[in-house]
Computed example of a mutant assay.
Amino acid sequence: MSVIIKYFAAPTHEAAATVVGPGPDGIFESRTWGNFDPEEAMIVWESLLTDRSFDNLLDDGEPETVADPDDGQGPVILAASRTLQAALADTDHSQLLQTSRLWVEQQASEGATIDQDTAKAILESLAQLARSIEHGDRLYCWTT
């Protein structure tokens, strides 16, 4: 199964939801990746970067679903928590490298494979995007 994932910034949930059908390309600056579970990844990343447990974040409803018009059968927009957004923006290169290594190990323990260089590149690009977000804007994920 092929999964397309695009992370982007938008000023509001309503603005982010407007791109649920076509995706953010041409409307919002985005970073494109694929073939991992973005919802689980955002929880894992936040857990690793903030020392909160995966289960605690899951219980808190992270990440928030902003738009899901086809009830999980089509494109979905998720909002990264403000905590994850801040953690990505504030993390340094060594923390990103360590987080990517731990994410690769976690994926391997669940039978999924992600290349270390790819994991690092994903987190570096998201950190760069998080650092560029205007005050008040949020980090979102579009996936199909």
Rank of each mutant, 00 (worst) to 15 (best):
I5D: 06
Y7E: 00
H13N: 12
H13Q: 09
A16E: 05
T18I: 12
T18D: 11
F28L: 00
E29F: 09
T32A: 11
W33I: 08
G34N: 11
F36S: 11
D37S: 03
P38H: 07
P38R: 07
W45L: 04
W45A: 09
E46L: 09
L49Q: 02
L49K: 00
D55K: 02
D59F: 12
D60R: 02
D60Y: 02
G61Y: 02
E62W: 09
E64L: 06
T65D: 01
D70N: 07
D70Y: 14
G72I: 09
G74S: 10
P75D: 08
P75M: 03
I77K: 03
L78R: 03
L84A: 04
L84E: 04
Q85N: 04
A86Y: 13
T91H: 13
D92E: 13
H93W: 04
L96M: 07
L97Y: 14
L97H: 14
S100I: 12
E105A: 08
Q106L: 12
Q106F: 14
A108N: 15
S109V: 05
E110R: 14
T113C: 12
T118F: 11
E124C: 00
E124K: 01
S125R: 02
L126G: 01
A127P: 04
L129E: 02
L129P: 09
A130T: 03
A130N: 01
I133N: 03
E134V: 03
H135N: 10
H135T: 14
Y140H: 01
T144E: 07
